[in-house]
Design a protein around this nucleic acid. Structure first.
Lengths: 137, 137
DNA sequence: CAAATAATCTATTAATTCTATAGACTAATT
DNA sequence: AATTAGTCTATAGAATTAATAGATTATTTG
């Protein structure tokens, strides 16, 4: 399951993507409209900023805005930033790979092979779907 | 990601499925061969027993054995027993459904629709793959 | 019956992650 | 200068995960 953090992050990004691009969006507005704790949302948006998905402006007229074309922001990358691996096992993760220390060989591991399939299947959707798709739903 | 518990449980079940069916398998044997803490494995196998996947026999010559044909034991059901939902959001889970309290309507929720796709895609593999398939890899 | 074997049960702990909050601080605008 | 709004640090509470400990019960075999 995705963490709440990730779900909130996705919702916030969708919210921002739906707004007029020329005006930064307030944290407090997103928090209210999407029913998310404002303080919690702050830390989430800060993460998204750190990874270059969002930009921000302080002071009056400030807020958060997308740094890239919504069509270029894929759901997979958002999940990776906020939730970590999409794969079901570390030994099968493309971006967060870790060897299973209980496993002598990935070559002969049936679980490894199965989870690669599951991963690729999930990615075939999540790497394709963008913020644009979600916002225009 | 799957919990270690689930990974260990899957590995143990595969191990059992590979053995001669007429002889119960020892926890200690599985623990040693698969490099899993024996005590931890005890609780995992107990869970699998509780759910009717495994049977057990105490005393000398005892151990754990499969209660069903390995072809009938699907990976999806094992994951559900040990890990819970396969879906990425509660509002999209078939077996552990929960409404998102921050979400006014699932009908108009883009995330909901997307995660249903991801779920169905994962299930198309996990509901098909059985212990038999994994054991004969 | 006694000894050995092996699962069962209860419980507790340690570690980690998740969720959320608090408060002081900095930057920008008017 | 006042107001607005994001930034930073930190911490705390809750939940979950991972693992361990020790006593107990069931079964087989000699």
């Amino acid at each position: 399951m995705l963490s709440r953090k990730t779900k909130y992050g996705l919702k916030a990004l969708i919210y921002i993507a739906k707004q007029d691009k020329s005006v930064p969006v307030l944290i407090s507005e997103i928090a209210e409209k999407e029913h998310i704790s404002k303080k919690f949302l702050e830390t989430i948006l800060l993460d998204l900023k750190k990874f270059g998905i969002l930009g921000s402006k302080m002071g009056k007229g400030g807020g958060y805005y997308l740094l890239k074309d919504p069509k270029e922001i894929k759901v997979a990358s958002i999940i990776r930033v906020l939730d970590g691996p999409i794969a079901l096992l570390p030994c099968v993760s493309l971006n967060f790979y870790e060897k299973c220390d209980d496993c002598p060989s990935e070559e002969t591991c049936a679980l490894n092979k199965l989870m690669i399939q599951v991963r690729d299947n999930a990615l075939s959707i999540l790497e394709k779907q963008s913020l644009y798709d979600l916002a225009s739903f």
